[in-house]
């Protein structure tokens, strides 16, 4: 499945109106915000259709996956939005991650667990809030909101330490940038190692650079460290490859169209996370050119003045004006 889908679920008292953008969406937040009620209404509609007194409007079939035989049921679900209730224990399992990989559904999971096996985006973690009454005075209108807001709202331009999730090309590029600024840049060798490095370096101003497209499982942990007083800032582009694609170095009209609305191009059965799609796209589009990209080793051409400047412009939230506009 690709594309984004608006979903309206309502009965006489409550209306939910939200849009699903990617293959994995997580809903969490305070108690009593209406998460279970949403799932109950979807279940009612799946059981009896409009006769249930609820209506569900969506271009795709919406279904709820529950119970201990989830795996058998899932095998028969295609081209659908699949919702899972809070406390469906299987959603945190490796089995579940393996079962949904390469499927043509989108999954909406109500859970406060980190769901470490699922590569979901920091952008697709939502809470539900009431935004008032709809239609008449009797119907409460509920909408989704992004729990972690803007991706780079708290970026430091002068960190004492930079931790990059990546250990390959992305890390090589960031280390080159920060070496020139006299700032230490280390690789975490994967997102699940970042929190341990953060604690080891407590007391310094740390900037974390990670792939936002799959960083969802780490967000609560790092957000809590920030709330408890650790001086940490986050820069979470989709991925390093997305930055290069955004830089304009590759002259290809397809790229701009794809970056404008990636959901229209990224097939969920082929790409478990957008990060992998952007890597594949960059490798394909740079093939045969001097900008040939591989994830493992950074093509040194990206460290040349012109190319480095182009990529740095995309990184402007991270860099002060001089660094973003000059390679010296």
């Amino acid at each position: 499945m690709k594309g984004k889908y608006r979903v309206i679920v309502q009965d006489k008292r409550i209306r939910y109106d939200f849009t699903i953008h990617r293959n994995i969406t997580v809903i969490r937040g305070d108690s009593a915000t209406g998460k279970t009620t949403l799932l109950d209404m979807l279940t009612a509609y799946a059981t009896a259709g409009a006769e249930s007194g609820t209506t569900v409007n969506c271009e795709k079939n919406c279904t709820v996956l529950t119970g201990m035989d989830w795996k058998n049921r899932l095998a028969g679900i295609h081209d659908s939005l699949v919702f899972m209730d809070e406390l469906a224990r299987f959603t945190a399992s490796e089995d579940f991650a393996a079962a949904i990989r390469n499927t043509d559904n989108y999954y909406i999971i109500v859970s406060r667990e980190p769901l470490a096996n699922l590569p979901y985006s920091v952008d697709e973690i939502y809470g539900i809030r009431t935004s008032g009454k709809y239609g008449g005075l009797k119907q409460t209108y509920n909408e989704f909101y992004r729990i972690y807001g803007s991706r780079d709202s708290l970026v430091y331009q002068d960190p004492s330490l930079v931790i990059a999730e990546d250990s390959n090309s992305g890390y090589s590029f960031f280390r080159n940038i920060y070496d020139k600024k006299g700032i230490s840049c280390v690789s975490a060798n994967g997102k699940s190692n970042i929190h341990a490095l953060l604690q080891k370096s407590a007391g310094t101003r740390i900037l974390v650079i990670a792939d936002g497209a799959a960083f969802g499982p780490e967000m609560e942990r790092i957000h809590r460290l920030i709330e408890s007083g650790h001086t940490i800032a986050l820069y979470l582009p989709e991925s390093f490859e997305w930055i290069i694609l955004r830089s304009g170095l590759l002259k290809d009209s397809d790229i701009n169209a794809i970056l404008e609305s990636p959901e229209d191009y990224i097939e969920s059965s082929l790409y478990f996370s957008w990060e992998r799609f952007f890597t594949a796209l960059l490798v394909e589009k740079s093939q045969g050119s001097y900008l040939r990209y591989t994830k493992k080793t950074l093509n040194p051409v990206y460290l040349n003045d012109k190319e480095r400047l182009a990529v740095s412009k995309v990184l402007s939230p991270l860099l002060d004006d001089d660094a973003a506009h000059s390679t010296r």
Partner: peptide, 28 residues
């Protein structure tokens, strides 16, 4: 709500059961 049900169990259930508080939001 699931959160309040869990809180009520924590307060009143004397079976010795250990409840998963991740059924509760931060407002609990």
């Amino acid at each position: 709500s699931g959160g309040v049900k869990t809180l009520i169990l924590m307060a009143h259930d004397n079976s010795g059961s250990i409840f998963n508080a991740s059924a509760c939001g931060d407002n609990c």
